[in-house]
Structures are given as structure tokens and as C-alpha cells.
Simulated scan of single mutants.
Amino acid sequence: MKLKIIVPALAIVFVGLVSSCEKDELNDNSADMNASIENTADLSSNKQSDNTKPQGTLKVVDLGVAGNFAILSKTGITSVYKSSITGDIGTSPITGAAMVLECGEVTGNVYSVDAAGPACITTSANMLTTAISNMQTAYTDAAGRKTPDFVNLGAGNIGGKTLTPGLYKFTSSVVIPTDITLEGGPDDVWIFQVSGTLDMSSAVRVTLSGGAQAKNIFWQVAGAVTFGTTSHFEGNILGQTGINLKTGASINGRLLAQTAATLQMNTVTQP
């Protein structure tokens, strides 16, 4: 009689143990599944983070139609033969007669508001009006950028320096007496705000490294710009006053002048 009572009791204990083991196994499987889901979510989150990594906040200056030109001027372009200009050139509103150069010095189009000037002139007054307006808007944009990364670096003397991407503000003139390097990637942007003049000494070079591109470099200059003999420059010049290149100087960039651009056996290459 006692045996009959013990056997059912043992059966109940056995069933309870089996049920408990199955429950623990289910809990373990559920935990593993949750961990797997969390890991997948983490991987997805990391992947999204990599794809949306910011590339910098400084935006290029929009040149508009002015960006189609290697040299654009409101009051004239002159050259001491022989300069070599790769890219379009143009003047407006002044007459084409203010472009004093030979057609053979330009690999590109020569635009004017009228038929005066070099024999190779193409008349396009409306387009030039737009280009000049865009040039002035670009100057205002560059001059108005806020929160500079560097203010009056080197007290205006940037010779010998390696310049990283960013916004540079100078409340005085800027001189480049020795070589400088602009170091950054192909999408990086440099904007230089210069309230005075910009002068680069003879035989001095601006060099790009790390994939930096001249098309992403903007020099907004209120005063006159002067490059010494056989010097080399990189970037777009937005000049409120004259841009003057002395004998043998070269630039990989654009000369966008609200007055005149003067050349003396120079090389100008639109980037």
C-alpha cells in the first residue's frame, strides 16, 4: 500500500524536473535569440554611422556662370606677349577693346559685350552680365562667411606654413614671402578672407598635398593682388581690386576681378 503511494509521488517529481529543464532551455534559447537581434541591430547601427560620417561643414563658394572662366574682369584684361591661358576669358561691362592680348594666347573662348577687341571675340552680352553678377555674389558670399577657424594667422605673414582646410580671416594684408602648403583631401575647402592686399614674393610657390584641389580654394581679397616673378599660385581669386601677375608667374585657378587683370608672360590654367 505504501509502495503505491510512493510511485505516484516520484512520477510527479520527475515530471516537474522535466518541465523545469524544458523551461530553462526555452529561456536560454530566447536569450540567445535576443542577443542575436541586439548584435544585428548594433552592426546595422555601425554600418549606418559609417555611411553618414560627416565630411566637414565648410561649403564651397558657388561661382555660378563665373566658374566657366579662367579670367573674368569688369574693366579689362591685358597681357605682355606671350601668356598662356587655358580656359575662357571675358570682360563686362567694359568694351572688348579693353582685352589687350593675342588670340593665340588663349586656349578657350574670348567673350565680350561687343565686337571690339581681338579678332577671335564671341559676343555674348547677356551671358557676361550674368557671369559678372555671379562673380560679385560669390565675393559677397566668401566675405560674409562666419565663425573663422583662424584669425590673423601669423599676423598676416603665412610664409612657410602648412594650412589645413577651414575659414581664415585676416583683418589686414597678407604676405607670402616663402613657400606654403595647403594640405587636405579632395573634398576639403579653404576660404581666405583678406581685408587688405595679397602679395606673394618672387619664385615662391603654393603647393597642394593630400589630394587638395585648386577648385575648392577661394581667396577673397579686398585690396590688390600681386604675384611676384616666376611664382606659382593655387586657387580661385575673388578680387575687389586689380589682380597683377608679374613676369613668368603662374596660377592653377581663376582670376575673377572686379577691376582689371594684368598679365606678363604668365600661365593661367582653369582648374
Rank of each mutant, 00 (worst) to 15 (best):
T95V: 02
M33Q: 13
A98P: 07
I6Q: 12
A260R: 13
I121F: 00
T122F: 03
I243W: 04
A261Q: 01
T40V: 10
I71C: 04
V206P: 02
T75N: 15
E38G: 07
R205A: 09
G104Y: 02
P8S: 03
S30Q: 12
G156E: 10
I71D: 03
K2G: 13
S201Q: 11
E25S: 10
A70T: 03
G211N: 13
S44D: 14
M99Y: 02
D28M: 11
S173F: 12
I217Q: 10
L72I: 03
K215G: 05
I77R: 02
Q55H: 05
A115S: 14
Q220W: 08
P177D: 15
V13F: 14
A142M: 04
P93L: 08
I6K: 10
P93A: 08
K169D: 15
E105S: 02
Y111A: 04
F233K: 15
V15E: 04
Q193W: 10
D179Q: 12
Q193C: 10
V65H: 03
L10K: 05
Q136D: 09
T52C: 08
N109D: 06
A142H: 04
V60A: 15
A212N: 11
V7I: 14
I191M: 11
N39F: 12
G184F: 02
D114C: 03
A66H: 00
V221R: 05
V175I: 15
T107E: 02
E22W: 06
A249T: 04
I89S: 00
T147P: 07
N266I: 05
G108A: 01
T181H: 06
F69A: 04
T130M: 02
K2C: 04
V221I: 12
I6N: 03
M200C: 06
L58N: 04
L72E: 04
P54N: 07
V7L: 14
N216H: 05
D62E: 07
T129N: 14
L238G: 08
I89Q: 04
N27G: 11
T91C: 10
G56M: 03
G210H: 10
Q240A: 13
G196F: 06
P165Y: 14
I94A: 12
G117I: 01
A214R: 06
S49V: 10
D149S: 10
A41C: 09
I77W: 01
S92H: 09
N109T: 07
Q213L: 15
T262I: 01
D141W: 01
E183P: 10
N134Y: 06
G184D: 12
E105I: 00
N266E: 00
M33S: 14
L238H: 07
P118M: 00
K82I: 07
V151N: 14
T171L: 15
K246L: 13
S172Y: 10
N244V: 13
